[in-house]
């Protein structure tokens, strides 16, 4: 079960839709893949859609947070979309606030938000 998370490119934005529950290895290889793709395509923005994810623990949250900081270092903005209510509540109760993370309700809003933020 060594599936990789597909990373799509749309103009200067990368779109990632995570469809399966992430195990630790998959989360780490996703981090690596995304950074490589950012490097090779010089994309300026990333949208990560989590609509299908029904749970996030502190490890996955940390990987996500790291991906966002690392992308920032490489000059790309990240918007996380589709965090489910149950996931948001659990994260908050765990004490994980993901303070500097930009979010949107769904992929469409996320792309709009990214566009706006890149214009500024």
């Amino acid at each position: 079960m060594r599936t990789r998370i597909p990373i799509l490119k749309l103009r200067d934005t990368l779109i990632v839709s995570i469809q399966w529950e992430l195990d630790d290895q998959m989360a780490l290889s996703f981090q690596e893949d995304l950074l490589n793709k950012l490097h090779s395509t010089a994309a300026r923005g990333v949208v990560i859609d989590l609509t299908s994810i029904d749970f996030i623990d502190s490890f996955i949250a940390k990987v996500l947070g790291d991906v966002i900081s690392m992308s920032g270092l490489m000059g790309a903005k990240v918007v996380i979309t589709g965090i489910q209510p149950a996931v948001a509540i659990t994260l908050i109760e765990l004490g994980i606030r993901l303070e500097d993370v930009s979010t949107a309700l769904d992929l469409e809003n996320g792309l709009e938000k990214l566009e706006r933020e890149l214009e500024d």
Binding site: D54, F55, D57, S58, Q84, P85, A86, I89, T90, L94
Partner: peptide, 17 residues
């Protein structure tokens, strides 16, 4: 419900880790 399912799943993940 879905929220409690997420709470329980997450708690197990943390403890197992």
């Amino acid at each position: 419900g879905t929220v409690d399912q997420a709470r329980i799943t997450t708690a197990i993940s943390e403890l197992a880790r």
